[in-house]
Design a binder for these strands. Sequence first.
DNA 1: TATTGTTGTCACTCGATAGTGACAATAGAT
DNA 2: ATCTATTGTCACTATCGAGTGACAACAATA
Lengths: 210, 210
Amino acid sequence: MNSQKSPQTVRNREETRRRLIQAVGALLSEHGFTALGVNAVARQAGVDKVLIYRYFGGLSGLMAAFGREGDFWPSMDELAGGDIEAFAQLPLEEKVAQFAYHFVDAIQRRPLTQEIMAWEMVERNDLTVELETIRETMMLRFIEMFFPEMQPRIDMQALSAIFGAAISYLVCRSRHIRYYSGVDLQSDAGWERLKKAMELIVRGIMAQLN
Amino acid sequence: MNSQKSPQTVRNREETRRRLIQAVGALLSEHGFTALGVNAVARQAGVDKVLIYRYFGGLSGLMAAFGREGDFWPSMDELAGGDIEAFAQLPLEEKVAQFAYHFVDAIQRRPLTQEIMAWEMVERNDLTVELETIRETMMLRFIEMFFPEMQPRIDMQALSAIFGAAISYLVCRSRHIRYYSGVDLQSDAGWERLKKAMELIVRGIMAQLN
DNA sequence: TATTGTTGTCACTCGATAGTGACAATAGAT
DNA sequence: ATCTATTGTCACTATCGAGTGACAACAATA
């Protein structure tokens, strides 16, 4: 449960800072944000808690630092499936569907992000604000880059808000419940159903473009 | 901040139970579930905390009791817009759209439900389980009742999972952030955009039925 | 080697929490 | 009026959290 504090071999400010930042990530993914506190982080890092105040000005500053270092949001590249060039060539319908799929995978692959997204539901703090900012700019840039032609006719922002919200919610919920509206969120089969439904939606929207 | 404890005028077990249950609701909607504890609830109810143990066996039991009394999920009737008969007569497309709208309104009208939904993201307890159960049966019954004819051709469960998830997420998030994917979640205009997008989706799906 | 600023440890205060045992006040019966 | 079970109050323990001040260990200088 508690990591014994292997007393610092060397005295090194940077190393200690890193250990603290890393401890935040470890605690978050192992025990969730409710377990996050000055004492717990220090214990996990094997370091005295006073150093959190000295080096980061408190837990809040430490979380901000953690936020700056993390990889808890997919890049444009990842959302495009790895090859932006190729993605740009896809037909519109395919682009939207691929985007949704990659988004599902990206979130499912990041338990830490799921945890922070759960946190976002509860309060705002330096970490959630960081995630908010990254996400917001990323989403808008993505839309602007790949779906400019649709913008006047279709409200891509609202559409991707709905998709993003649905996916975020369902992935997050899948951590604690199994069935939502009769769909098994903890099985691949369930997610296949959801993907099929998303495809259906995308096809329907595209049909209205003509 | 703290409600002074107006010392019990009458000694009455039932009355005290009610005060405690009510205090849970008050605390939840005013300060969120993080503020919920034996001490806080007792203080809010103006009653000694030992009575929570005596009458409910602990906070968990009290929350279960609270869950049983609450009106934190819309009824079939409410989701149908008040008149189930009339709703059943609507064309398919209209039914789905109306359902989504009513769902948005129903959730927005229930801050307590929003709070519990946020809680659901974080942990399972007697209260969130209660809400889960109600929701799950309600959603399935609703689909079964009003969209039986679509079932084989279109996965209504998956579709309503997506709609329900998106709406739940966006309403919950609107409590702490303003913009999501460029949409203003705290303005009527923003929600109009979202409703329009949902309409678009519904129309597109229906078009594929023919 | 002696000095000085940095890095880290320790021990403490203060406040809040969950849970419990002893006791006082009261209602409803006899 | 008296007794008794119920209802409610109070005081207490034990535990945990954030935050702070004093001090020890150390590294890099002079």
